[in-house]
Write a protein that binds this DNA or RNA. Structure first.
Length: 1042
RNA sequence: GGGCGAUUAGCUCAGUCGGUUAGAGCGCCGCUCUGAUAAGGCGGAGGUCCGUGGUUCGAAUCCACGAUCGCCCA
């Protein structure tokens, strides 16, 4: 191939910070590397270097004014006292892409956020205080309770920050947003007021999932959190409802919630399904009991309207109800009886049916899930306590047909794990109907990775109900709703408005929070009478969803330094409240990333709020990722002992290894995280480490001094060096497109292939050039390739890359993270392909050697290669240890195979005959690479020619390439083989005796080794011997020369 | 019940547009190379590509039906 003049690319020169100048000048040599890196130790060193040199600040300064990359961090709930390895996954991804964008010169905000309110925090405090109900919290005192909650946030945010820094995450620590700041709360108030202005806000009475322990309803998206649905056994009851107008006949219903039976008002049948009456008078759906005998059959619609006696009509609420049969198209025929017990006060769909059919609504249990007084003997019992008694009672009254147990997935409270019940409650909602079409349109513009997550969002947006925003709790956003007896709903939109309209109590308002805010009544804007706030607090996802507005200063007229640090956040952060111009610059986010369950949580809440306020999505692009499991694929549970605290992972594998594990993971699959995979990763990292170690050892010996500023050398490079440079450029390009696609897994794949090429081809091929020294091109090329790769991998492995960078780059940027992204030319793909071919040939030749039983140390005469050509004959000869490489026809039995992609379309059905003829050797050679078989003439590009073995040759074939190794030996070859054996033996001895690479020796050989002295010079130079002595019948021995 | 996805070696997973002998890593066995390597290379054992049917010269790949698992919704 034509020699190609190579030009080193000009690398971006960046002035390095002066504070490091002195220490750089002192480092005159490369620091020798230990055999194995101690990741945790070197990471601590790098962390202190970053700290000492202010590397992150320098980076931000360097990129100031550059193009903007807007990332908004989803807040992490500040309730845990240590970083978890699953949180570290997300934080790693966020950090990787921020670091990548920083290398590309992007200006970024780097604001971290904490979620500070809501049940998660409350429940933790309740536990630590030993409180177990809302009543006990109120007795404890809401003021002190609020302070305890804040303490949790303070401690947790410190712990999470420490862990994140250790992970290598670069954020603007100290300017974090805390969602419990008054500023954040005020922004939500503003949002709610706008929403109210559009008429979307309403108080609804509906059945919702309810946690009896927390005493609050649970929203649809809280049900989406992982761990909510758990397997559980419930009673399975078949219950008889006697028909009033037909003696001896009854409807049979099936239920798994006995406690709802006292609230029964109706029974639903499918109007179009067939129902049958058994001999004993029981009506059920025919389809569900196909083997039963029925004395009468009716379509469901003819049962509609019939009245029956309720199961607990002896209790006051049931006695007042006229129980009847209603039609319902959603009655399913897969389990139960086909007749559904309807209790509108205790079931979601039941409640909807009550509206349609104008049914009475019975609410059997209170906030704590206990029966109300008018339920007589059930009064005060919890739903589970009541179940047994209800079943017993049904047995006594003859209503019970059958009882058993039923295992199913049942929802539990996402925080306290209590089984949820359905309960009617008054909750505040935001209607979504009007904005739903815009939500769908906007979501279609968002680029989701993986794509199916966007579809999930779309499904959710299509099907979600109105947003239940109220919670009957304490430590949360105070909903600014002041309903007046006059019928007017006052919604306060800001602290200033509150102060203006306050009737009293404004002076004691420490924070916009219960209990202080509840002491501030305002005057009704309609009638002027004093009105009080409702007691409810807001859904935490309002807190997180407003972040793209509250932290960026939306509609804020003037920038306020540290203006975000208000209320409970005062003293915790120095975050500013920017002005509206800033918001315009940074909104919407270019990219956000969280785990998949956030689709219905944070991805949704901010999306909803943003579309409501601006008509636009708050983000352009999303990276979602799946779940973390242990290395065997099981869920991580503290009780199973398979959780890994991030602290342990930092100490035992190191942050880079963790980050590798996270980044090697395709986001659409669950991550199997653990120490086993970490061990593999450590081994893989070793290859790069050892490559650098190799470079450092010989560069020190050779006193090689790379120069960052003189990288733009011109001139021809030896072919192998040119190849490594092109190979590295190809890697840079591949990594670049992987990063741009937000797929770290592709960066890792490209890196692993590159390292293999570096270590198992370039370095292995080049070793003698480094031993001999003086080959500037070799050192320069290896240095260049490693240094470029460090830059590419710096976002993923920020510690080990910087550690190596600081050792290798003496006059360039002080840190790899300040070095920018390598600018490279398009790689020479022809050259890369050529070397790939060489490696294919070498692999085949090694196979052939293996088959022939000749060790690689034994030189052979000739290798013949057919089916491929290459200019790299010397390299092949050297790798295969043969004297001669010949490209041409292998003199051996032909094997011809059809080239299917070429022949298939042309021959169609005839192909099979040709294939068979070729396989059985029934073909004619026409010359020029053409063949005739089964009556068809085959062109050269329509066949693949391979060769089978032949006398005196070892042959190997694959994919149309054949190599034949001449296996005959002569005295000369045998002698040379012995020489190589000896060299290897001596070098092993050198190593065993601990000689330095540069030590010279005196070699003593036994007499029978005398013939080897024909190669004396070669032996001397390869084992660094100054003298070879021959000494009778002693063995081989060495001594260090003085 | 509806939707989405998956099912490939002992384990974890690749497998491009339908194409020749279905691959990798780890683990196991044998051999080998080594002057950076605790690595590397070569070979072996190990496969009902979930099943059935279809389309096609040709199916792990496309289509249909079914099974199992996971996730989401109800």
């Amino acid at each position: 191939m034509p020699s190609r003049s190579f030009r080193y690319p000009v690398l971006q020169e960046i002035e390095r910070p002066s504070l490091d100048f002195a220490s750089r000048m002192a480092a005159e040599v490369f620091q020798p590397l230990p055999t194995v890196p101690d990741h945790p130790a070197l990471e601590e060193e790098v962390l202190s270097a970053w700290e000492r040199e202010g590397t992150f600040q320098v980076l931000r300064e360097q990129n100031r004014g550059g193009p903007k990359f807007s990332f908004v961090d989803g807040p992490v709930t500040a309730n845990r006292m240590a970083l978890g390895v699953h949180t570290a996954w997300g934080r790693t991804l966020k950090d990787v892409f921020q670091r990548y964008k920083a290398l590309r010169g992007f200006d970024q905000r780097y604001q971290n956020g904490f979620d500070c309110q809501g049940l998660w925090i409350e429940v933790g405090v309740e536990r630590s205080l030993g409180l177990n109900s809302k009543r006990e919290i109120e007795e404890f005192g809401l003021e002190e309770f609020a302070r305890r909650c804040r303490d949790v946030v303070v401690q947790s945010s410190e712990a999470l920050t420490r862990g994140s820094i250790r992970l290598g995450q670069w954020m603007d620590w100290g300017r974090d947003y805390f969602t419990f700041s008054d500023t954040n709360i005020e922004y939500i108030w503003k949002f709610l007021k706008i929403v109210h202005g559009r008429g979307w806000l309403y108080m609804g009475h509906r059945a919702t999932e309810w946690c009896p322990r927390c005493g609050t309803s649970i929203s649809q998206h809280e049900l989406a959190m992982s761990g909510v649905y758990q397997e559980r056994s419930d009673p399975s009851l078949f219950v008889r409802f006697p028909l009033l107008d037909a003696d001896g006949q009854s409807l049979v219903v099936w239920t798994t919630t006995p406690w709802t039976l006292p609230a029964n008002v109706a029974a639903a049948v499918h109007p179009d399904e067939e129902y049958g009456r058994r001999e004993n008078g029981e009506w059920v759906a025919v389809k569900l009991f196909p083997d039963d005998r029925f004395v009468e059959r009716l379509p469901g619609r003819e049962l509609v309207g019939r009245r029956y006696r309720g199961p607990f009509d002896e209790l006051e609420p049931g006695s007042k109800v006229e129980h009847r049969v209603i039609p319902w198209g959603d009655v399913t025929m897969d389990q139960g009886t086909g007749i559904v017990h309807i209790a509108p006060g205790a079931g979601g769909e039941d409640f909807e049916l009550a509206r349609v059919h104008d049914l009475p609504v019975l609410t059997p249990v209170d906030e704590a899930g206990r029966f109300y007084e008018n339920y007589g003997w059930l009064h005060g019992l919890s739903t589970t306590e009541a179940a047994d008694q209800i079943i017993g009672r049904l047995g006594e009254t003859g209503f019970l047909v059958e009882s058993g147990l039923y295992a199913h997935a049942y929802p539990h409270c996402w925080r306290c794990d209590t089984p949820l019940i359905f309960r009617l409650s008054d909750d505040w909602f935001i209607s979504v109907e009007e904005v739903r079409p815009t939500l769908l349109d906007e979501n279609a513009k968002v680029e989701w990775t993986p794509e199916y997550m966007g579809k999930r969002m779309d499904d959710w947006l299509r099907n979600m109900g109105d947003w239940n925003i109220s919670r009957r709790r304490y430590y949360g956003l105070p909903l600014p709703f002041y309903p007046c007896a006059c019928g007017h709903l006052n919604v306060v939109g800001s602290k200033a408005e509150l102060a203006e309209r306050a009737v009293e109590g404004i002076d004691q308002l420490e924070e916009l929070r219960r209990p202080w805010i509840d002491r501030v009544p305002i005057s009704c804007e309609a009638c002027g009478e004093p009105v009080h706030r409702i007691a409810e607090v807001g859904d935490v996802w309002l807190d997180a969803g407003i972040v793209p507005f509250s932290t960026l200063g939306w509609q804020n007229p003037e920038w306020i330094d540290e203006g975000y640090a208000t209320g409970a956040a005062r003293g915790l952060t120095r975050a500013d409240l920017p002005d509206h111009g800033y918001w315009e610059e940074w909104f919407p986010a270019d990219w956000v990333s969280e785990m998949r369950e956030q689709i219905r949580l944070w991805f949704y809440s901010q999306f909803f709020m943003s579309v409501a306020l601006t008509g636009r999505s708050p983000y352009r692009r999303v990276l979602g990722y799946e779940k973390m499991l242990d290395e065997h694929g099981r869920e991580m549970h503290a009780s199973w002992g398979n959780t890994i605290p991030a602290e342990d992972a930092f100490a035992q594998m190191g942050a880079d290894v963790m980050r590798w594990q996270y980044c090697a993971q395709p986001p659409e699959r669950n991550l199997l995280f653990g120490f086993g995979p970490a061990g593999e990763i450590k081994r893989e990292l070793l290859t790069l480490w050892n490559s650098v170690k190799f470079f450092v050892e010989y560069a020190n010996i050779d006193e090689f001094r790379p120069s960052w500023s003189a990288l733009n050398l011109e001139g021809d490079l030896p072919a192998l060096d040119r190849w490594l440079v092109e190979r590295t450029h190809a890697f840079v390009r591949d990594a670049e497109s992987a990063y741009e696609g937000y797929l770290t897994v592709d960066v890792m794949r490209a890196y692993q292939e590159w390292v293999d090429d570096l270590s198992n081809w370039y370095i292995r091929r080049s070793r003698p050039r480094f031993w001999e020294g003086g080959d500037r091109a070799a050192f320069q090329t290896l240095w260049y390739a490693i240094v470029q790769t460090l830059r590419v991998m710096a976002p993923i492995l920020p510690f080990v890359t910087d550690h190596l960078w600081r050792n290798l780059v003496h006059d360039g940027p002080a840190s790899v993270h300040l070095a920018g992204w390598p600018e490279v030319d398009d790689p020479d793909r022809d050259l890369l392909r050529d070397v790939e071919n060489v490696r294919r040939v070498v692999t085949l030749a090694h196979q052939a050697r293996n088959a022939a039983g000749h060790k690689l140390r034994q030189p052979l005469r000739k290798l013949v290669v057919e089916g491929i050509s290459s200019s790299h004959t010397d390299e092949i000869a050297d790798e295969v240890n043969v004297k001669e490489v010949e490209f041409g026809v292998v003199e051996a039995e032909l094997r011809v195979k059809p080239n299917l992609p070429a022949l298939g379309p042309r021959l169609g059905r005839e192909l099979r005959a040709v294939q068979q003829a070729l396989q059985s050797g029934d073909f004619e050679e026409l010359g020029g690479g053409r063949f005739r078989a089964a009556g068809h003439e085959l062109e050269p590009d329509e066949v693949l020619v391979e060769r089978l073995g032949t006398e005196g040759f070892a042959v190997a074939s694959a994919d149309g390439v054949t190599v034949a190794l001449d296996t005959s030996l002569d005295d000369e070859l045998v002698l040379e083989g012995r020489v190589r054996d000896l060299i290897r033996q001596v070098n092993t001895m050198r190593k065993e005796q601990g000689l330095a690479l540069t030590d010279r020796i005196v070699l003593t050989l036994p007499a029978d080794a005398r013939p080897l002295l024909r190669w004396e010079d070669r032996i001397k130079s390869e084992v660094l011997a100054v003298e070879i002595r021959v000494d009778g019948d002693a063995g081989v021995s060495i001594a260090r020369a003085s």
